[in-house]
Design a binder for these strands. Structure first.
Lengths: 353, 353
DNA sequence: TTGAAAGCGCTAACAG
DNA sequence: CTGTTAGCGCTTTCAA
C-alpha cells in the first residue's frame, strides 16, 4: 500500500535514496540508511513487484511449462514440480505453472513474448519438440527436464536411462534370470518419440545383448488394464519368463494383478522390477516393489537451479546432466526359479490353460 | 520486443488508439482498427504484462498457496493443483505455485503486499489457521480449499465429509457389516486440527450411532508401515472385525498388506473402503478398492472459478460449497461374513496366534 | 554521499 | 471517432 514516495517523505530523503537502500547498488551513509529503514518498517512498506519488474525488465518469475492432460500427473512428474517450486521459492523467484501442450505453439509464443517470464523450465519434452525452438526464437532462457533428440546448445537435466536400464538388467541377471520381458509405454508413445520410452527401448536391447540374451519387449497402455494385457501378451510370447522389467508406472499394478490371477507368485515364480518409480508407489505394492527410484525432486531442483544461474550470470553456459535412477531392492525380486537345461525348461508356474 | 509505440507509429495513430483497440474500452472505426491490427501482426506485437499490470494495478496472476513438505503431494492434492491451474489458464490468468507453510506468516504477508497476486487460493487449511486472517488483513481476495472452524465471511470449497462418511458407512452396513473400524490420520494431525481428520472423526461417530453401532477408531501414521500397525491395533481391539473404513490414502496399502499377512481375504473376510481417494490409486490395489472418490480436480477448478468471479465482479460475494466424494464400488467390499448371534460370534478369519 | 529527473510500456482520464 | 498527457511505482543515469 505504502509507496516509495511515502517512505522517502517520512525519512526526509529522495526516492532514489530509498531505492538505493533497497537495492544496495550505491553506498549510503549509516545515518540515512537507518532513517530509511525505520520509515519502511513504520509504514510496513513492500516494494511493488510490477513496478520493479517494469523498471528492471526482470519479473523474477519463471515458468514451469508442461502439458496437463485430464488424467493428471504421476508421482514422478509431481516431484519435478515440487522440486522446482522449492528451488525457485528459495531463490526468491515465483514459479508459474503453465499448462502448455506440445501442440500449443501459438499459446507458447504468446507466453514467451509477454515479458512475464525471465525463463522457463520445460517438462515432458519429446524427442522432436517444436516448443524448444519456439522458446529459443523468443530469446527466453530454457532448461529442459528431459531432452530432445539433438541437444546441441541447450540446457537439460534428464534421467540416465541407459545406466538405469543396465543396472536393472544386471540386477536381474545377477539373480539368475535369463528370460526377462520388458514392458514399455504404449506403441503410440514410442512412435510419438516419447523420450523415456524410446531411450529405454534401445538401452534394454543393448543390456540384454551384453549378456547374450534375447530382448523381448511388449508395449502397454498406461493403465492397469494395459498392464494386465501386456503381461498376458508377455506370457503368450515367453511362457516360461522369470522376470518382468516394467517402465510403465501406470501399468505395473495391472501386471502384478495379472500375475496374481495366473497364480504366479512374486518373487518366487516371477521377479518384477519397476523402472523410474517413486518410493511411495513402490511401497504400495505387496510385496513392495524392487524399483529404480527416480530422482524426481532432485531433477526438478537441479533444473531450476541451472535456470536461475543462467538468469543471474550473463554467461550463457549450458548445463547438461543425466541422473540415474537408483536401485532399491524390496520384495519383488528374488533368485530365478530353477530351470532344466538352458533353452528348454520347465515352466515355474502352472500353465494357464 | 515491439512496443505499443512502434505499433502506433506504423499504423499512424496514437498510442491510446492502439491501447483502445486492444482493450476494446471505446469505439474505434473499422478502418483504423484494421490498420492497427495489421501493424500488430506485422510487428508480432505482444503487450507487456508488467507494464499493463502496473497501469491497471491488476497482475492477472493468482497464487496457489500450499505447504510443501518433503514427502510431496498426494494424488488428491495434485488434482487440486491441476484443476486450479487449468481453470486459471482457461480464464487467461497465470497461476503461481507458492510453498507457504502454516508457520510462514511473515513470508505470506510479504507475498500478499507485493502486489503480485490479484487473489489466492489457499490449500491445506487448518481448523485454526492464521494464514486466512493474514490474507484478509492484506485485503487480498481468498478462496479456501478446505475450511477453518469459523467460516463466517469467507469463501471456500471443501469435501462434504459428513455426507461422504455417512455414505461409506451406509454402504458397509447395507452389506451386513456391523463391526467396522475406522482408520484415521495420525493422532498429531487430529490434534493439530487437520480438518479432514477432525471432521470425519465426528461424522463416523454420528454415522455409526445412527445404526446403533459402536464406533471404533484408530489413528495411523501416513505411511504403509503406519497402516500395518493400525490394522494390527484394529484387530487387537476388535478381533472379529469385518470391515475397515480408511481415511488415510498413504496407509491404505499397509492395511491391505497386513490383512494379506494375516490371511484375511479381501473382501471375503474383511471389506475395505478407502475414503477420499483418487480412482488411479484405487485401481492400483488388487482387488481394486471400493472407494469414496474425491472430486479433486473439480474442487480445484471450482475454487479457482469462484476466485476469478470475485476478481472480475466488484461484488464481494462469498462462495461456500461442499462436494461429497462419490462411492465407487470395486472389488474390495462384499457381504459381511456370516456370524453366529449378534454380539458373540465366530471370527471369520483364523486367529493370529 | 545525495537529489532530480528521465524513463520502463501501458491505461485512462481529459480534451477535442 | 481520435489524440494528448498524466500517471502506475520503481530503477538508474546524470549532476551536484
Amino acid at each position: 500500500m505504502a509507496t516509495m514516495h511515502d517512505v522517502a517523505r517520512l525519512a526526509r530523503v529522495s526516492v532514489s535514496t530509498v531505492s538505493y537502500v533497497l537495492t544496495g547498488t550505491r553506498p549510503i551513509s549509516e545515518a540515512t540508511r537507518t532513517r530509511v529503514l525505520a520509515a519502511m518498517a513504520e509504514l510496513d512498506y513492500q516494494p511493488n513487484a510490477m513496478a520493479r519488474g517494469l523498471a528492471t525488465r526482470r519479473s523474477r518469475i519463471v515458468g514451469l511449462l508442461m502439458p496437463m492432460d485430464e488424467r493428471g500427473l504421476g508421482a514422478t512428474e509431481t516431484a519435478f514440480v515440487t522440486g522446482a517450486a522449492a528451488a525457485a521459492s528459495a531463490a526468491g523467484y515465483h514459479l508459474v505453472l503453465s499448462p502448455v501442450g506440445v501442440a500449443d505453439l501459438d499459446v507458447l509464443r504468446r507466453l514467451a513474448t509477454q515479458g512475464m517470464f525471465d525463463g522457463v523450465v520445460l517438462m515432458e519434452v519429446q524427442v522432436e519438440d517444436g516448443r524448444v525452438a519456439a522458446l529459443q526464437e523468443a530469446g527466453l532462457p530454457v532448461v529442459l527436464i528431459g531432452r530432445t533428440g539433438d541437444t546441441a546448445g541447450l540446457s537439460y537435466v534428464d534421467i540416465d536411462f541407459e545406466q538405469t536400464v543396465h543396472e536393472a538388467v544386471d540386477h536381474l541377471v545377477g539373480l539368475g534370470h535369463r528370460r526377462i520381458v520388458y514392458v514399455n509405454h504404449s506403441a503410440e508413445a514410442i512412435a510419438a518419440g516419447y523420450g523415456p520410452a524410446v531411450r529405454t527401448r534401445t538401452a534394454f536391447c543393448a543390456a540384454m545383448a551384453r549378456h547374450g540374451l534375447e530382448p523381448v519387449m511388449i508395449a502397454s497402455e498406461d493403465s492397469a488394464a494395459g498392464g494386465r494385457a501386456a503381461l498376458s501378451a508377455a506370457v503368450a510370447q515367453v511362457p516360461d519368463l522369470t522376470a518382468v522389467l516394467a517402465m510403465n508406472e501406470s501399468a505395473i499394478f495391472g501386471i502384478l494383478g495379472e500375475l496374481a490371477n495366473r497364480r504366479r507368485a512374486v518373487p518366487e515364480d516371477v521377479s518384477v522390477v519397476s523402472m523410474v518409480t517413486s518410493p511411495q508407489v513402490a511401497e504400495l505394492a505387496h510385496p513392495a516393489l524392487t524399483a529404480m527410484t527416480s530422482p524426481g525432486a532432485a531433477l526438478g531442483r537441479i533444473a531450476m537451479e541451472a535456470l536461475l544461474r543462467q538468469l543471474e550470470g550473463a554467461a550463457m553456459e549450458h548445463h547438461q546432466q543425466l541422473l540415474p535412477c537408483v536401485l532399491e531392492i524390496r520384495g519383488s525380486t528374488g533368485p530365478a526359479a530353477r530351470t532344466v537345461g538352458d533353452g528348454e525348461l520347465t515352466g515355474s508356474g502352472p500353465p494357464d490353460r
